[in-house]
């Protein structure tokens, strides 16, 4: 119990530091890139005077640390500000309304935009992770048990091919073959959950090599551990040693990979794939925000993505310390 408390306090504190660092980085980055966001909001027709007024009103001319402090104050209360370009009604309005002054109240709150998009992304990510584990764990475990034999070679070649398929290209090929030519699955946009299948499959193909490799390495290296041979000499069957002991021990590196590599990879590719499939998740929101220079949205998504990664990492590590108590020391 003491351990769990100690662990979470320590890791949460470290995580908070990480999140603050990321927030600072993104925040500063967005303020030093060329281009004035006020121009984006007001459009090219607005006079320099009006633009300057708006900027002052919004605090965009304050020194960056001051702006950051204000921003953090807002974020702590759960308020990520309002979009520069999207109206509360949902339409993107950036720069289309001539000289009118910028009115904050009719812009969409960032949190609302994100919360609308999150369920779609969760569905996609969950489906991708599920498919990927379903494909890769059996292959990886078989490869680990038969190290050097045909399942191992199959796993090697399969994962080499999977990891060599550029996700955007694979997406296009699948859209063309499965959806356009074959008419088997819908692909572009979102109407119901079947729209998530194809993009999830693309993501799963991208994730699988990571799992196949780490599962096969984890299982095969555990099979070489002396306790496996010793267990059989002690009178336990090989099947029992594998099912009860080897798989349990192999979980630890797998959890590690899940926390460090897989979730980060999934999150990154999710953005690209959502863009390629025009799938209305957080990734599409983010990429559009980048093109529209919608800074509040970019900031919020980057910070939340980072928070998610940090949390997943903490949970995964905690799970690992529960499987292998040595990690508590």
């Amino acid at each position: 119990m003491i351990f769990a408390l100690d662990f979470f306090l320590r890791r949460m504190a470290q995580g908070l530091v990480i999140i603050v660092l990321v927030a600072m980085l993104i925040f500063t980055l967005l303020r030093v890139v060329p281009g004035d966001p006020v121009r984006t909001m007001l459009g090219p027709m607005a006079s320099a005077e009006v633009a300057e007024q708006t900027a002052q009103k919004m605090g965009l001319r304050d020194p960056i640390p001051v702006q950051f402090a204000k921003y953090v104050g807002q974020v702590v209360t759960g308020d990520f500000g309002r979009s520069f370009v999207r109206s509360a009604q949902g339409a993107s309005t950036g720069g289309s309304r001539g000289g009118a002054t910028f009115d904050a109240s009719n812009r969409a709150p960032v949190m609302g935009l994100i919360l609308t998009a999150v369920p779609y992304s969760l569905l996609l990510a969950g489906l991708a992770l599920g498919i990927s584990l379903l494909i890769s764990l059996p292959i990886g475990i078989a490869a680990g048990l038969k190290s050097g034999k045909w399942p191992d070679r199959l796993a090697l070649y399969l994962s080499s091919i999977f990891v060599s398929l550029p996700n955007i290209w694979l997406a296009l090929v699948l859209i063309f073959l499965v959806s356009v030519k074959g008419g088997l699955l819908p692909a572009i946009g979102y109407q119901n959950w079947t729209y998530a299948i194809l993009p999830a499959f693309v993501l799963a193909i991208e994730l699988s090599p990571v799992f196949i490799r780490s599962a096969s390495v984890a299982v095969s290296s555990n099979m070489l551990e002396p306790y496996v041979a010793a267990g059989q000499i002690r009178g336990l069957s090989r099947a029992r040693m594998i099912l009860v002991h080897v798989l349990r021990n192999a979980m630890i590196p797998l959890l590690n990979v899940l926390g460090i590599q897989a979730i980060g990879l999934l999150l990154g590719s999710l953005f690209v794939i959502e863009y390629a499939f025009n799938y209305p998740g957080v990734g599409l929101l983010m990429i559009n925000a980048v093109f529209q220079r919608d800074f509040p949205v970019i900031q919020a998504i980057a910070i939340l993505a980072c928070t998610l990664l940090v949390l997943v990492n903490i949970l995964v590590d905690f799970a690992a310390t529960n499987i292998d108590r040595r990690l508590q020391y």
Partner: peptide, 24 residues
Amino acid sequence: MRITDAQMAIPVIILAITILGLSR
């Protein structure tokens, strides 16, 4: 290592899209 962790907590693609999308 904290700086490393922070940098690692932003997926490569997200960082690249943000920076390159906003600059030339």
